[in-house]
Amino acid sequence: MSDTPLQADRDKAFAFLKAQARWRWPEIALWAFAFASILLMPSRALLINEIAILALFALSLDLILGYAGIVSLGHGAFFGVGAYTAGLLAKAGAGAAPLSDPTLGLLAAGATAAMIGYATSFLVLRGNDLTKLMVTLGIALIFQELANKFSDITGGADGLQGVTPAKVLGLFDFDIYGKTAAFYSVTVLFLLFCAARVIVHSPFGISLRAIKGNALRARAIGVPVDARLRAIYTLAAAYAGVAGALLAQTTAQVSLDVLEFHRSADTLLIVVLGGVGTLYGAVVGAAAFKMMYDFISSYTQQYWQFWLGLILVVLVLFVRGGIMGLIARLTGQEERA
């Protein structure tokens, strides 16, 4: 009948979405390696933990930057909010189960960051790129000032002390070698990564890419542009909050440093280094960034910033698409936009 061709189109569209969302073997290998690395290099567990947290934070930025095209200089605000939420919660529970439970901490941090993300999304989604930059930066600075001023709650410049999370799932205690921490962070990263993967390959994710490509045309074909952008901004805020919570729980402290500007800038670098809008770019970028940092700062601790700047400049001028783009070109795969 008349709906047969439509039905065929629909099937084709779903087949396309399914094909896009199929797991490929390098992905499985990467995750297997991520988990195995903790067992293989137990002495590097703390480093792996840091990489996982950075990767989750970068992933949250990639969601808004790579899939929705929102350039933010203040994503660190949500990271900080999450870190303080989890930190305060763990402190209030004093290491005992109900309040200091890490999973509860993650959920609470994600929820708080999401609420703030939703509230601020109305402010961020106005105006052009420059206005967005300024508003996101402004919001981050406001949070930094708040954390600084309410030092009786946040511990101010001294940081929040006495953050003692309970056992993970009531089973695994955090050890000083960071093995539990690394497993915990990598697992959380993996679960949230899978969720993000489903989201970006869903029709919702495709509509976001349409908005990034051309917001005007996306609106014309019936995509509710503002609602979609608010949704992804809120989601990304929640992700960043969870990343902050992981940092607070696994390092057992929160300092004002979580809200510093350099955190937002570093994360931008990680996403660009790894490849914008690829999800895996965030993970690969975080690992590359952290290893580069360790390598360079073992030679020149103080002037690491210079090399960081140089990397940024070279990346923008010569390396398009970051590490993931490079891999795609080397393996001869066309970039799927």
Binding site: L65, V71, L73, D129, L130, L133, A265, L268, L269, V272, V276, Q302, Y303, W304, Q305, F306, L308, G309, L310, I311, L312, V313, L315, V316, L317
Partner: peptide
């Protein structure tokens, strides 16, 4: 280039200038 790239590039220059001044 896109605004993102301009932001990255100029932040990079800023970082280099800051480290140079420090040095």
């Amino acid at each position: 280039k896109s605004h993102l790239e301009q932001v990255m590039f100029t932040i990079g220059l800023t970082f280099m200038a800051m480290a140079t001044a420090d040095y």
